[in-house]
Design a protein around this nucleic acid. Sequence first.
DNA 1: AAATAATGAGACATGAATGTCTCAGTTGCG
DNA 2: CGCAACTGAGACATTCATGTCTCATTATTT
Lengths: 193, 193
Amino acid sequence: MSQLRYPHLMATDRDSVLEAAVGILSRRPTAHLDEIARAAGISRATLHRIFPGREALILEVGALGLRRFSAALDTARVEEGNAEAALRRLVDAVVPDAALCAFLAGENQLYDHEEINDLWELQDARVRALFLRGQQEGVFRVELSAAWLSEAFFDLVAGIGWAVQEGRLAPRESAFSLAELFLGGALRRSDTP
Amino acid sequence: MSQLRYPHLMATDRDSVLEAAVGILSRRPTAHLDEIARAAGISRATLHRIFPGREALILEVGALGLRRFSAALDTARVEEGNAEAALRRLVDAVVPDAALCAFLAGENQLYDHEEINDLWELQDARVRALFLRGQQEGVFRVELSAAWLSEAFFDLVAGIGWAVQEGRLAPRESAFSLAELFLGGALRRSDTP
DNA sequence: AAATAATGAGACATGAATGTCTCAGTTGCG
DNA sequence: CGCAACTGAGACATTCATGTCTCATTATTT
């Protein structure tokens, strides 16, 4: 196989196909391989040469999403400093891959794959830990469980991904909109703490 | 057909099947009809007798979701009184049907059906109008667009539906968690306005 | 209790998406 | 220039969900 020959080039090639696939799959998870191949600018035959089949493709999309999300957590250094600042850094880091996260959130078929599941659990735990830490530091509200804060955060990231992809939200506004709504809520306040 | 014979009984029967279908479809939109039939406690043959086919079933699930959501908007009287109070009423009214809304949010296949699309647009406009009114009244933040507030609200409703369905959130906490996070955000505040 | 209707189980055909193959055209590299 | 690898287009078989049908069983009504 060629990926053994040109590992680096092949990796970016695979990733570019995967990103094209996300663009289609995040909207319609049942899209035909034909459509995905066309979106990636390659033929169905080549798509099959890169990924053994649909299942493998979906799996790799999930793996890519988790890699990106993991990298975003690293970039944002979520374990360091003030919890609110850490979350804002996470928002900035994750917004570019929001579409990928939207796919992850909606695709529960991946959850019977052990390796993917473990990796997801790992990243999810990091996010939950961030909220728990923030609650202990008195930064985040304690009336809302850390699990729900984490869940809601993912939901809104996915929502950002969908909204941007369908042109309902300007990409430049996305990070601000996500951070402000999630952290500050919808209510107007006279004094900003 | 029997629905002509016992219109009322048949309606509730249909709805109960549809609700069972939502339980499966909101998680896995590609679930086989076999699985849906078993979840509804009927055979695949009977499922076919009630709904001509998969497409018809999906369509009716969407229509049910929109009926419920429309009814929730009516029940909450979203056009009346203080916008914040109206939204809190809406949360209470919509939470019982959160799973249905989660399906609606994720199912973009319905959007090429004119009747469904129009009905959806109507309800969506009511929600947007609520946020716009709230902004004009000085209740909701103006830095976030009404469109995004509406989008985010749907995302969180869907998230509530998923979380409850998968046991990650207690049903009794769901309305509180949704309203508090959406309205107040994740940040702890010294004074509650 | 008899008759009628509804249901469930299963067989069967159909169609669509997938997986596999071949071959001609293209690109890239020596 | 020539060779090797890669790609795209298409044909083909296969698989599987769907749609349709029949028949025995159950329930419902009269």
